[in-house]
Design a protein around this nucleic acid. Sequence first.
DNA 1: GAAGTATCCTTACAAATCGTAAGTTATAAG
DNA 2: CTTATAACTTACGATTTGTAAGGATACTTC
Lengths: 118, 118
Amino acid sequence: MLPGPSTQAPAQSGPACCPYYHRAVELIGRRWTGAILEILMQGGSLRFSVIAAAVPDLSDRMLSDRLKELEAHALVERTVFPGPPVRVQYALTHKGQELAPTLSELKRWARHWLDASA
Amino acid sequence: MLPGPSTQAPAQSGPACCPYYHRAVELIGRRWTGAILEILMQGGSLRFSVIAAAVPDLSDRMLSDRLKELEAHALVERTVFPGPPVRVQYALTHKGQELAPTLSELKRWARHWLDASA
DNA sequence: GAAGTATCCTTACAAATCGTAAGTTATAAG
DNA sequence: CTTATAACTTACGATTTGTAAGGATACTTC
């Protein structure tokens, strides 16, 4: 018998993927979404242009798309102040704020492990 | 004076985005990567086909790409057992395992807030 | 000894997503 | 009447992803 893993088919029902977790990671993992959430965690209620300025290389189009998604999933609340120029503020809902520990943990990991590496 | 946010340009230097965190969320937020990491957190050392079976709708091509990325970033270690059929095992490195608290927090959030919603 | 099987990838091409740059709206100031 | 502003849209090319098929290899079955 050679060393190494079994050559048999894996026992029926190995590890499985939690569907709630999977939906979550695909939602907040979309491009730019993580950064936008981080910014909103810091200031209470921020204007479109403030968020755009806080995230380098984030275009208007992407910011607009991502905020729409976050609003659709009830992570962010949108308030319009009529203008013109119209001003719009975005703030995290309770649901959104509850992501703080996750973001915090990830930030800790990132600072430790991504510090001097590519 | 009308109610609402300032009409002035935002004070210079509002909130800012942590570059380490940003790199981290864009890395583990790539499509399927979060799910693959979750599976690897469960079993110690898993074969390609076992991971593929654990994540619904994940194709060979994507799994191959993502594992290559994770290996390049030193989150995952790859071991080949010559065949044929050749067998390959993937396991988290220490750096990868240190993501456990983050994933755990996110999973908690997901189960609480994504339970009965779309 | 020809054919089938198992495993881990590749390749090719269509579809979806993203990046970049320019355009839109509406009013008040000058 | 022209300009300025904030928050979006739109258009289009570039990148990423989904889908399906193919490939390499040697052991096992017929």
